[in-house]
Design a protein around this nucleic acid. Sequence first.
DNA 1: ACCTCATTTGCGAACTATTCGCAAAAATCC
DNA 2: GGATTTTTGCGAATAGTTCGCAAATGAGGT
Lengths: 130, 130
Amino acid sequence: MGIRADYVTRPREWIASILAREPRFLSAAQIHQGLERVGARVSLSTVYRTLDRLQAKGDITARPDADGEVTYMLCEPSRHHHHAICRACGRVEDVDCAAMEQFAESLRALNGFELDGHAIEFFGKCGACR
Amino acid sequence: MGIRADYVTRPREWIASILAREPRFLSAAQIHQGLERVGARVSLSTVYRTLDRLQAKGDITARPDADGEVTYMLCEPSRHHHHAICRACGRVEDVDCAAMEQFAESLRALNGFELDGHAIEFFGKCGACR
DNA sequence: ACCTCATTTGCGAACTATTCGCAAAAATCC
DNA sequence: GGATTTTTGCGAATAGTTCGCAAATGAGGT
Ligand SMILES: [Zn+2]
Ligand SMILES: [Zn+2]
Ligand SMILES: [Zn+2]
Ligand SMILES: [Zn+2]
């Protein structure tokens, strides 16, 4: 009568398969729509709960888009890297951290990506807080 | 009888002064609380409307925090630069873009900032979309 | 296959952040 | 101060997300 956690269920498989085939950040609502389009009836609550689970497991990365709506993508946050996001189609390509210095050139060379902007945030402790 | 726009009002002055004295990203609710603490009674709607105005004028930068709540800071987005955000106190220091290559060293040298993480996103057009 | 029981799901309600409509208040100009 | 326009506050509306709970489903044992 211990805990028998981690059931394999249809909704979870369906949601994972939606994420697996889309190399872009998707909102919970978009995933829900994707499920409907495939004929998989899953409630929005379950989508949210499953996304929370996947994030806790470290299988997906979450990121609020410009409007603050949270979006999710299959991507291991533990393997440190960055993202190149297509302004037109939203496609996300992983960018190795070492390539950061020559980012413009290496992006174009490696993926044919035409860079037109970037956003960087550094985190740490300021002088006062150290 | 032309348009006589851009009134100078108490609420706008109060909100600007809250932003002026805080070198960190604040949510609309936090600004509203800051106003109350100073005895300035301003509705939350006005806070939102004023923030929209300031953003349209290019005086402040908005950024959704990790939970998707939008936060604002006095900072000209037109002057291209990045931010170093203190994990402990939230203090934001501007980082010149050119310094990006040697970011860890220059950050520590310039501001005594102890870097322990960063987030980067590149934008543009992927090979398929060009 | 069937039974049992823990886990998961769906539903609707609750909650939170943000926006909107409109009448009352404030700012500007004369 | 009076006329006119903009801004404010309020409460209602909206949108994204979370919660509670009864019903459905998955896992394990027989
Ligand atoms: Zn990734
Ligand atoms: Zn593309
Ligand atoms: Zn700045
Ligand atoms: Zn600090």
